[in-house]
């Protein structure tokens, strides 16, 4: 009987070891959920400052991590503003002046339409597994969900955020909370992701609150009203010609 108990225990441990999830597995699963060949979405960006709150609506198209196109549809003041990102280049079309300007250099550090996102953040789409080394920390409960806590350190020196801390929903493999750090260890930004829904065969957060931790205000909320993945989007949407259309 005693031998049987030991054997059972050993088998349990071995099975546990075989099926123990690694930090890399978690990152791979997050990337599977969060990235796609193509994405189309209709979203709202709610910008809250100390003085006022305003909402911008847009339709967005993206291809992989490097190419994306957004067109603002509301409010009237911003309607028609278009933004095209192609790898490290970002162009902005302003309908009031009918001009296309390239955003570069120091200007990339400025906030997008007064939000907590800089143009650089807007361009910062990357696959976590490829970019970061992850360490699995203690489990944590966040927003009533059981989560893995991951500590990510940049593999290369060129990444904007040297360190990230992620709380990843164990069941749906979606980061529900992220902290983004400077190299010195100062917390720069946080992201809260919620309203996780099943879209096709993946989970996706429809509600994201992005907060610049150094700046006053309650942050910027991005709400995806509708989203589709891996649909066919004509190449025309990812060319500079679309900006002046």
């Amino acid at each position: 009987m005693r031998k049987l108990l030991i054997l059972t225990l050993l088998i349990s441990v071995s099975v546990g070891m075989v099926f123990a999830i690694t930090a890399e597995d978690i990152l791979m699963n997050i990337d599977k959920n969060m990235t796609a060949k193509t994405t189309w979405s209709s979203s709202r960006m709610i910008i809250s400052t100390r003085r006022a709150t305003r909402t911008l609506s847009s339709v967005n198209y993206s291809k992989g991590n490097d190419i994306s196109y957004s067109e603002y549809t509301a409010p009237a003041k911003e309607k028609g503003t278009k933004m095209l990102k192609m790898k490290d280049n970002l162009w902005l079309y302003d309908p009031s002046t009918d001009r296309v300007i390239q955003i570069s250099g120091n200007m990339l550090k400025q906030s997008v339409m007064g939000s907590d996102l800089s143009y650089e953040d807007f361009m910062d789409d990357l696959e976590l597994l490829e970019s970061y080394t992850a360490i699995l920390d203690n489990d944590i409960t966040y927003d009533n969900r059981k989560c893995y806590k991951l500590i990510l350190t940049a593999k290369t020196s060129g990444l904007s955020y040297f360190k990230r801390i992620l709380y990843v929903d164990k069941e749906r493999m979606i980061p529900l909370y992220q902290e983004l750090y400077a190299k010195s260890g100062i917390k720069l930004k946080t992201m809260k992701l919620s309203d996780v829904r099943k879209v096709g065969n993946r989970w996706y957060p429809m509600h994201i609150v992005f907060k610049d931790e150094l700046k006053a205000g309650s942050g910027t909320t991005i709400i995806n009203d509708d989203i589709e993945f891996n649909i066919s989007i004509p190449d025309y949407y990812f060319s500079k010609a679309i900006l002046k259309k």
Partner: peptide
């Protein structure tokens, strides 16, 4: 107060 900048390689750095 806090000051933020980018290193030559593109990573954010910040100090008080």
């Amino acid at each position: 107060l806090t000051m933020r900048w980018k290193e030559v390689n593109g990573a954010y750095n910040a100090y008080d």
